[in-house]
Design a protein around this nucleic acid. Sequence first.
DNA 1: CGTCATGTTTACGTTAACGTCAACTTAACT
DNA 2: AGTTAAGTTGACGTTAACGTAAACATGACG
Lengths: 131, 131
Amino acid sequence: MTDDLMTIRDMCAAYDVTPRTLRFYEAKELLAPQRHGTARLFTRRDRARLTLILRGKRFGFSLEDIRQLLDMYDRDGSQQEAQLRRTFEVAQTRLAQMQRQRAELDEAIAELQDQMEWGARQLAAFRNAAE
Amino acid sequence: MTDDLMTIRDMCAAYDVTPRTLRFYEAKELLAPQRHGTARLFTRRDRARLTLILRGKRFGFSLEDIRQLLDMYDRDGSQQEAQLRRTFEVAQTRLAQMQRQRAELDEAIAELQDQMEWGARQLAAFRNAAE
DNA sequence: CGTCATGTTTACGTTAACGTCAACTTAACT
DNA sequence: AGTTAAGTTGACGTTAACGTAAACATGACG
């Protein structure tokens, strides 16, 4: 398996983030790039995690929320049972959260569409009034 | 129509927010409660808006994002054409955003469920190994 | 070998979204 | 009238999630 390492610049371009952000995520232990001397090299694992981080953020989860979820995606079998069990429970909670969020989002979309229909009619009325 | 006014305490209890939060939202012009002397009285309109504010936050929208959307829900016909048109465009943008978000959320849910299935199998293996 | 781009650490600054006082005012009881 | 209870306005503090700037290291290249 080719390790497919990326520099910090590559990462920034690929994910549209700043170097500061990547270093920040590393400090928060969300990422753990290899070091070549002092320079960072990001692995496939780091990239998978970054994808999840950015997605999580878009849904309003905090970095700390996300950090707890991330371990779930490390399917390297390196986890002990107790640890795996805790991770599993965190994931259950998060899944329920996301499903509620999904239902609410549907509702919000429907509501907004309804409002927009009304708005469209109002605009049509304006155009009419102007003959 | 009964105006159905609520004090700040009523609001806090009903929506599980602090007084500080409601005053903050007012300062940011997200809410505009009536004044009885110096005290605030929240109307049905304020409550509708607060519902949307809290929902928006759960989806990771900033208060400024939300502020722009809120006018869409004031269907009192008091808007001028140009203003209504701008509001409509904001809403279109937001709607697209929310639809993308829903697609992504579906994907994330599916992914997480997949991971959890794998996790469940791992846990089963542990239980097996313990005979 | 110099220099220049690209990286690093360290440290302080910033913005959003509130929390936490303190010092007052007002309304409502007793 | 006195005293709570509930509300108000500042003003400053806090946390998360980075931005920004300074000072230094290092590898590649002409």
